[in-house]
Simulated assay, not measured.
Amino acid sequence: MWEVKSIKIKAFAKVNLGLRILEKRDDGYHNIESILQTISLFDELNISLAAESIVVTANNPELPLDETNLCYKAADILLKRTGQKRGVIINIKKNIPIGAGLGGGSSDAASVLTGLNLLLSLSLNKEELRKIAVSIGSDVPFFIDGGTAFVSGRGEKIEPINKKIRFNYLIVFPGFSIDTKWAYEKINFLTKRENYITIFNCYFNDSNSGNLELLLKNDFEEVMLGEYVELKKVRRFLIQNGAVSVSLSGSGSSIFGIFDDIMKMDNALSFFAGKGYWAKEAFSIRSSEIPQFALE
């Protein structure tokens, strides 16, 4: 019988369509509420089976390749919990900026779980994969399905949103990373209960970007825009170049603009490229479009 020995898989980025930071938990995390949306920007992973050990390689020298790497953690935990005596080689082609609030590391880890589940014919269902994912990182469970979802707790409680959301995004990375743990330590306020995001207050359809001013409120913005003048500049440039709404993604450092005019978005992309920024156009990816992979 033909044995599949490797898989190529796309690990999609996400943006936060709003983020509220609630009370600090006993475990040191904060409870949050957010709407997460996968977008068409992705890392590329090549996962191969080996006789022994876990090896991670990457095209980005800033990425750790040891057991602190989330892909390494994902492979290690999955192999141990399923009793597999195999090795794994993981090559990561990073297209998603590191420390940008776009969930690249978490998405990569989820893709390793999904990929190894297929390669090793483990037949784990998505709920079983999510239970493993939560031990790797708060955002990792979301990426098992991706799409659009309301998340709460520390990010592990996921409620899919099945309405068709097809926004056009211009993602701008200012050239520096923001450490998530440091960002939470800088937060000196909590969202008031009456201002919490609820998915019932958010309206979406294919022809209307909805009540974005209500939705795109990120509690990190006040702090991060105060810390980094460059973020204020990027936000202002996006608005000046036609974005209908602008927000920080996660704790940053990426800022995205939503555009309802593709020509304006193309022009804005040229504007940022001319100023030397990393900028990419993207659109929403639905859960039905995930995973995208090729077996070899």
Rank of each mutant, 00 (worst) to 15 (best):
S121P: 00
A11T: 07
S270P: 00
I92H: 11
D108A: 10
F12D: 02
A294C: 04
I199W: 08
G137I: 09
E296F: 07
Y196I: 12
G28L: 04
S254P: 08
F272N: 03
E44W: 00
S121E: 15
Q292S: 11
N162Y: 14
I199N: 08
G105P: 06
G252K: 07
I96V: 13
E67G: 04
W2I: 14
I32D: 08
I171Q: 04
R130I: 06
I144G: 08
I35V: 15
L113C: 03
L79V: 02
A109R: 09
S177V: 05
S270L: 12
V244T: 13
L269E: 10
E52G: 00
L19P: 11
P61V: 14
G99A: 09
M263L: 12
I47V: 13
L269Q: 10
Y184S: 09
D179E: 12
S287A: 12
H30N: 13
E230F: 00
S209H: 11
I92E: 11
K264C: 02
L124S: 05
C202I: 14
N201H: 10
F293L: 12
T148M: 06
F293G: 02
A58S: 15
K192S: 12
Q292R: 06
I32H: 07
S48E: 14
G250A: 07
S53N: 15
N168S: 14
K8R: 13
T82N: 14
L170P: 02
E222S: 11
R286V: 00
K131E: 15
S253N: 10
A13R: 02
G276N: 03
Y169G: 01
L231Q: 06
E52D: 13
I239E: 15
E52N: 11
I165M: 12
K85I: 07
A183M: 05
A294W: 01
Y72E: 10
N195W: 02
S284P: 03
Q292I: 04
E52T: 13
L79N: 02
I161Q: 05
S121F: 02
A273C: 01
K280G: 00
S209N: 13
A133M: 05
I32V: 15
G155K: 03
S135N: 11
A279T: 04
N95G: 05
E213S: 11
E67W: 04
E289R: 08
G155I: 02
N31C: 06
Q37D: 09
L231C: 09
W2P: 15
P160R: 10
N241V: 05
I98W: 01
K275W: 01
T68E: 13
G99C: 03
A273W: 06
R235V: 10
A268W: 01
I290G: 05
L295S: 07
T68D: 12
R154Y: 00
A282K: 10
I96K: 09
F200P: 00
E194S: 12
L70C: 09
Y277L: 07
D261V: 05
R166W: 00
L190K: 11
T191N: 11
I89W: 04
L79H: 01
E281N: 08
L19W: 09
V15R: 02
I171L: 13
E44T: 14
V4F: 05
Y29G: 08
F12E: 01
L102T: 05
A110K: 07
G153W: 03
F259H: 04
I165W: 04
G103D: 06
S209F: 11
A243N: 10
G83H: 07
K8P: 00
N205I: 06
R81P: 00
L225R: 07
K157V: 14
I165R: 12
W182A: 10
A74P: 03
